[in-house]
Design a protein around this nucleic acid. Structure first.
Length: 566
RNA sequence: GCAGUUGUGGUAUAGUCUGGUUAUUAUUUGGGCCUUCCAAGCCUACGACCCGGGUUCGAAUCCCGGCAACUGCACCA
């Protein structure tokens, strides 16, 4: 693990570059160079293969600019903020809670802005730079704000996460999936957060790529049909208990995690397993990974359970790269409330249940004259009231007292009780959501870091040991020397391989050793060398990056060889 | 956002304190020569003083501001 060497080569060879560099750059943004872009795409394609193809989820794409209502409902407009204050004299801007904490040495994190204003006034807190008067506090929202339309009267924000785009399509999606739970929807794309001062390179960006899946399921049934297939898979988990008591991470099977109630449900465990599988397959091994359960104070208010997947780095320590949360029905409930849309689904039960229950109705000829203008609200109360309870109380005490804004006494003659039988064919439910959320840029960084092979002595070299599935360049082709027609043949073979849709680099510069080294450095798994034997027997050598082993094969069996390999 | 350190070809650097010739060296990269398998060698070319302002006859060098990076603090729903 070596951040410095790795980033050096990554910049040199076109993986990651600072954005807007010729204008001296802006922190919190990064450019993917040719190889970085290709690597990232390969990782995202691999992700799609796992979640869309293998899991049967579907991908959608929604706008990156969202109207204010959406983010108001999701809570981002009001809560995704920091309190700020500005000095009237020198115009410096500060985090209000920080100035106050420094000045009076008290934790004021929980206070509202108005209360903070009062604290500033009461303690006569001044600008720490020039002692000028501080303004009232406003919220600095971490979202990028913009205007929609020429009139500019509609406020929009760049989305702070891709997930909301899925939630607000719920009505359409539930029809698309023909009303059956569970179903999964994914979105890969950019999200934006105007961080105050991002300083960890590609780890903390203002514009970043997420890959999120939202799995909608029955709140009463969070089992997972594929769970049995992975029940005996080993997981390494740092549960709340492990963290709070400084224990070693648990090494347990998926089944044990479920039985011991360490992870809340099957679907959540299955998602932990999928995340681990994905990371392993793109070259991030278990030994640099940690599955960490959020502590109860750390958990977002909407999450029922949440696990972070963290990767170990030499420079930034443990970095969160994936969050897997059970968000409950928080999002659907909020959007349903704000939009006045019914965001629930009717779920048919396995068997029809016939129930008989007592219902209560007002006996209107007596009820109306007695309660007059209060009658409607008492009637409304009765619609949702427990009829059995009312009946009991009236039978025992002769009356039932309703406490609304006033107290009303219901007598037996005001009401009609009926026994009613109905068939329950199912129920209307608001699905819960389990969300694995991948930070793609951080994952690309982790792949670069943990694929990077550092030399231990002078003969060894530094290179990216990418898994062949994600290597940005798949093949290199070299003529052993640039003469006697070997070079022409190399170009010919390159063209042929490119027509088979392989990403191929041909290199005729420098010595053969230099060419291997250049190819290794950017992690090209295979090199094909054309030499003098090629002219005689139409064979080439295939040389593997990781062990430098060579084998000789016929040119006409190259296609099959590569098909098997990739 | 605060404090400190730093900013010279793609990379790593000399020069900055003490202002003054064509900005040092290595490596990388392109072209050529050579080369029958792992960064060999030779020739050659391209390539830099972070940006803006000030001081000065003259600024890579001194001063101020900005931007960025690094370290620590803070922030990270």
């Amino acid at each position: 693990m070596n951040h410095d060497k790795m980033t050096n080569i990554s910049a040199k060879r076109g993986f990651l570059w600072p954005s807007f560099e010729i204008y001296s750059g802006v922190s919190g943004f990064t450019d993917y160079g040719p190889l970085g872009s290709s690597l990232k795409n390969n990782i995202m394609e691999k992700w799609r293969k796992q979640y869309v193809a293998e899991e049967g989820f579907f991908e959608i794409e929604s706008p990156t600019i969202m109207p204010e209502e959406v983010l108001k409902a999701s809570g981002h407009v009001d809560n995704f903020t920091d309190p700020m204050t500005k000095c009237g004299k020198c115009s410096n801007v500060f985090r209000a809670d920080h100035i106050i904490e420094e000045s009076i040495n008290e934790d004021v994190e929980i206070l509202e802005n108005e209360e903070l204003d009062e604290v500033i006034l009461k303690n006569n807190i001044k600008c720490p730079v020039c002692s000028g008067k501080l303004s009232n506090i406003w919220n600095y929202n971490l979202m990028f704000k913009t205007h929609i339309g020429a009139k500019g009267d509609k406020t929009g924000y760049l989305r702070p996460e891709t997930a909301q785009g899925i939630f607000i399509l719920f009505k359409r999606l539930s029809r698309f999936f023909r009303g059956k739970l569970p179903f999964g929807v994914v979105q890969l794309g950019k999200a934006y957060r105007n961080e105050i001062s991002p300083r960890q390179g590609v780890i903390r960006l203002r514009e970043f790529t997420q890959a999120e899946a939202e799995i909608f399921l029955d709140p009463k049934d969070k089992t997972c049909p594929k769970f049995s297939k992975i029940a005996s898979e080993k997981l390494y988990l740092s549960s709340q208990d492990v963290q709070e008591n400084n224990k070693d991470p648990l090494e347990i099977t998926a089944q044990e995690a479920l039985d011991k109630n360490i992870v809340a449900n099957e679907t959540l465990i299955y998602q932990l397993y999928l995340a681990k599988k994905f990371l392993n397959e793109i070259g991030i091994p278990d030994k640099v990974l940690r599955f960490r359960q959020h502590l109860s104070g750390e958990m977002a208010h909407y999450a029922l359970d949440c696990w972070d997947v963290e990767v170990n780095t030499d420079k930034y320590g443990w970095v969160e790269i994936i969050g897997i949360a059970d968000r409950g029905d928080y999002d659907l409930a909020s959007h349903s409330r704000e939009s006045n849309e019914e965001l629930s689904m009717f779920q048919e039960s396995d068997k029809v249940e016939t129930i008989t229950k007592t219902i209560v109705k007002p006996n209107l000829s007596k009820f109306g004259p007695v309660f007059k203008k209060d009658a409607p609200k008492i009637k409304t109360f009765l619609e949702t009231a427990d009829a059995d309870e009312i009946k009991d109380v009236i039978e025992k005490e002769g009356k039932y007292t309703v406490k609304l804004d006033d107290e009303f006494e219901l007598l037996k003659e005001h009401l009609i009780f009926e026994d009613k039988t109905e068939d329950i064919k199912g129920k209307q439910i608001m699905p819960h959501v389990i969300e694995p959320s991948f930070g793609i840029d951080r994952i690309v960084y982790s792949v670069l870091l943990h694929s990077f092979h550092t030399s231990e002595n002078d003969e060894d070299k530094d290179y990216f040991k990418f898994k062949k599935e994600i290597a940005p360049v798949q093949l290199s082709v070299f003529p052993l020397v640039n003469k006697d027609g070997l070079d022409d043949l190399a170009f010919e073979i390159t063209e042929k391989l490119r027509s088979l849709a392989y990403v191929v680099e041909i290199d005729t510069s420098g010595s053969i050793g230099k060419r291997y080294a250049r190819g290794d450095e950017i992690g090209i798994p295979l090199a094909i060398t054309i030499d003098y034997d090629t002219l005689e027997d139409e064979t080439v050598t295939i040389r593997k990056r990781d062990d430098e082993s060579q084998e000789r094969i016929k040119i006409n069996s190259l296609e099959n060889y590569l098909k098997d390999y990739y």
